[in-house]
């Protein structure tokens, strides 16, 4: 089936924007940054679980995008291509040895009694515990789990972002699930949160 005309037009726009960026056109670079910054941030946030360190990684991602932009030929949508680079930057970041940091923190005793406050506190604490478990995993498993299980992306999309096969991606998600479940058996709070994510 041939691509729809609109898709061709958009892709042509992507190539044109990429070409202008490659020539050092600052307004084009700014346009690309603004067009795709939310997408990049969302991927990084999902993988990392918080905004800590995220500014540097967003910057890393776009620097890598501009460094590699000459190689973009419109073989995929520009957004997909940027997302792939973002995933690569996140992987490199997680692969660097660094001390573990607790990313999301609350002190439940200090939160007010309002029901919405309880929900926020529960959600934050659950996220903190979940990402604390993910922080112990191989970055490949962590990214696959974050993008598929938490973010709800299709397995084949995650495979494309991680530049690997569908089978490998399924395996990574499965291994991550196994580890998370193992920790949840020892952590009723985390188990309760995971159970709340089951379809009703």
């Amino acid at each position: 089936m041939s691509p729809q005309p609109n898709a061709i037009a958009v892709q042509h726009d992507d190539v044109e924007l990429a070409t202008r960026c490659a020539s050092g056109d600052r307004s084009a670079q700014l346009q690309l940054f603004h067009d795709h910054k939310s997408r990049v941030h969302a991927i990084l946030y999902r993988i990392l679980g918080s905004n800590r360190e995220i500014e540097d990684l967003v910057q890393d991602t776009f620097l890598e995008v501009f460094r590699s932009i000459e190689s973009f030929r419109g073989q995929a949508r520009l957004g997909t291509w940027v997302s792939t680079i973002c995933s690569r930057v996140a992987f490199a970041h997680l692969s660097r040895k660094r001390p573990a940091v607790i990313d999301v923190e609350t002190v439940p005793e200090m939160v007010t009694d309002a029901p919405e406050s309880d929900a926020i506190a529960f959600s934050r604490e659950a996220a903190r515990r979940l990402y604390a478990v993910l922080a112990k995993l191989d970055p490949k498993y962590r990214i696959a789990f974050a993008l598929h299980v938490i973010d709800g992306r299709k397995m084949q999309d995650v495979a494309a972002l991680m530049e690997t096969t569908l089978v490998a991606t399924k395996s990574r998600v499965w291994r991550a699930r196994k580890e998370v479940s193992k920790h949840a058996r020892r952590d009723p709070f985390l188990a309760s949160y995971l159970a709340s994510q089951e379809p009703s």
């Binding site: 941030h41 905004n51 299980v149 995971l194 089951e198």
Partner: peptide
Amino acid sequence: MTDSFQTPPPIEDLSEISWK
């Protein structure tokens, strides 16, 4: 465990200053 989360944790956007 569910295939994908029903209500994933919200993504907190960066502040305008951070984006700048």
